[in-house]
Design a protein around this nucleic acid. Sequence first.
RNA 1: GCCGCGGUGGUGGAAUGGUAGACACGCAGGUCUCAAAAACCUGUGCCCACAAAGGCAUGAGAGUUCGACUCUCUCCCGCGGCACCA
Length: 859
Amino acid sequence: MIEKKYIPKQFEKEMMDGWTDAKIYETDASIKNGREKMYTLVMFPYPSGAGLHVGHARVYTGTDVLARYYRMKNFNVLHPMGWDAFGLPAENAAIKSKKNPKDIVPHNIQTFKNQMKNLGLSYDWSRELATTDPNYYKWTQWLFEQFFKMGLLYKKMTPVYFCESCNTGLAEEEVLPNGTHERCGKPITRKLLPQWMFRITTYADRLLEELEGLDWPSGILQMQRNWIGKQKGLNVDFKTDTNETLTVWTKYWETVFGVTFLVVAPEHPWVQSIIQGAETSKEAKEVKEYVSTALSKSDQQRLKEEKQKTGVFSGHYAINPVNGEKIPVWVADYVLSSVGTGAVMGVPSHDERDFSFAKKYNLSTRQVVVYDIPDVDAKVAAGEGFFEGKGTLVNSGDFSGKSTPGEGKESMATWMIEKGMGEWYTTYHLRDWIFSRQRYWGEPIPMAFCEKCAADKITWWDTDDGKGFLKDYHNISKVNEDVQKNLYGWFIIDQQNLPVELPHLDSYEPSANGESPLASVPEWVKTVCPHCGGEASRETDTMPNWAGSCWYFLRFADPHNDKAAWSPESMKQWEPVDWYVGGAEHAVLHLLYARFWVKALQDLGMVDFSEPFLRLRNVGMVLAEDHHKMSKSLGNVINPDDVIAEYGADTLRVYEMFMAPFNQEISWSTTALQGAYRFLNRIWNLFDEREFIDNNTHEDKKLIAKLQHTIIKVTRDTADMKFNTAIASMMEFLNEWEACKHKHALSKSSAKKFLQILAPYAPFMTEKIWKDVLKESESIHISHWPEADESVLHQAEVKIPVQVNGKTRALIVVSAHNIEKDAVVHIAEQDPKVQKYIGGKIYEAIYIRARILNFVLKD
RNA sequence: GCCGCGGUGGUGGAAUGGUAGACACGCAGGUCUCAAAAACCUGUGCCCACAAAGGCAUGAGAGUUCGACUCUCUCCCGCGGCACCA
């Protein structure tokens, strides 16, 4: 028996505790249990102080439905949860409340965890992890060291954002698009600081190629491809009058006869050399001034000043290798040092940016392509004829008259390469990854620097361990001279001294000189050189918060291992992830970084797969009722706790799964939420009113057939994350069931099946009825998913729409034994509605077996 | 500008190339009630009609097809991402 009225809060809380005590959601770790594994993973959250959002509820519920479905399908399911708790948001929140993040984070985690339990999420909490736990980040640091050994890391002077008003270094996320600091609103500058760089670019080709075959949303795949941005072009060398070479990279080498000037970025090394060479010349002074102004701007600022091109003549000239012409070299900040070679050839007739630059500074132009478009010469002269498709080369020496793209473009490349003027060069948009943060709340980078060893030019690969590594791993090692030169005196902290724990600091705000706050703790910094035993200092930078999320999905397979990051068996048993679910905002960064780590780990022999996430699905955002993003300032935030208190967790779950396709954005609707509540209420009432017995002779045949259809539909849709249509079909079934007034319309076994297919969506209510009405002793959530009786699909009668000229005019019902063309056409021809249109006319009948009949009239 | 994703009733949405609008919300009328809420019943794309029967409808326009929300092309609009990318 159940209570007359459906009041979820009377049993939900206590039920969750019961499940926890019975450990029904704990993963079966034994390998030989004969069940297929299923790893369902949702992107783990940063546990903010604000608690769970209804958007969180949506993505966790969706993944939970999958996990519950597979569990009932007798898969061995791994469905874990953890906390991505390092990073700026936690640190800034802690600074604001004048506490240490170490003290705040556990509290936030507890809040999140309680809320998740209230939602009925079936995580295996025995595998919970937090990136901030020293037992976890010990292995994050250890992995960093393995990548270091491979030669994937190096140290380099790199510009970081800096706020002079707050005296602090900033992360990119803290810089607003207008180049100001998001906290104080003052303009930011940049400082050169030594940074750890991760050589993700060495994996660019694999990161691109191995996207093939992933079951991911096409948009995300495209964004990854674009981000990697592989492009083939030509590096072309120009000799300067300082007797140096300026190399430009171009996709449009066919226009090289049209080059009338060169432009180099202010950061280009050649610019430094000419300033130092001639301090007193007028041009050198101007260049120097221009460069210092340009460097003080942020990237965003430089990009903002679109079209307003500025630049300065360097005072030097270069020789165009294809025609020997002497052309001026300019310095301008519309050329970015991070793109291509940091130097471009100026072809004003065929490039919009070069055109406006040439116009502003009165530089000459020369048209070298005539495109197949109307008024081509006038357009090119007006600065409008930029790469308008096919054309013919002109003013291009022996190549004049040839086509481009086509023979002219091809043969010019061959010729330039033969003559040593250029060579093929593939560029990528992808850059090496800045891995240092000068902030407190992150994993300390486990490295030590020894001045003496640095002076002696000793690297880790000169140590016995290093030599051994190079010998064992020479085929995958990425160590080269450049990497080694950057790493004199840098050594990894021995494994037995890991983790390098983050010290508890009273003051951990970013320091005035842009250094990490850890640098102000001399007793922490001071250490012993792992190589020579002399005095050394620890690296004071920390890792970015991506570090922990790059491998957490691996640790879930073996979360308590204190001998290794994971065991080979655990990888074999669980990886890779079968379903990965999360927001599209991680389309590039997190997913790219995690893929990169896994590829490197594969090279190290630590995993035997190269892609971590086989299937990826995105969740749509949950907007407020007014279609705006939920925000405190707009006062439109819906708190899941309030919804659960009023309607229960099952209502929230069913509502969020029903509203729209899972990957689509939805706006909150309280009335639609009440609709979900009504649906559950009606089920509750029906189970209260009807009687459920075995060997039932009153079972309604039509209703049973409907139930079988519903099982088929819900099974298929749930496994495909089409939760909205799965729920709709259960609503249809309920409507029919209610219409059958007989109290024995459904026998006990049929009623059980209906509850079972609903169980992943409404775990609390179904469990309550399962136990209290149907008197089952074991939990519904570990019962076996019902098999549908497919024979109901073969109905006795078939409805066939009849069209005339493609317009539906009638619906005929024929016996399932009688659905061949001749018979159906004969029946349809007798139908008066059809007669009206075809009577006395000549027609052809097109019949698709058991689907449709179409009479096409012959005029 | 480029890349990606969308555009179907009053609303959210459904539809292996085969009866467009399932399911839900809302709305209208009704039952119950002193009354209201809740619950339940009936109706509900638009046009013309008492009804029947029609006609029109999936952003716009073309195309392929016996048949197009679905496939192809052109265009318009909205959302998201990237961008002085050489």
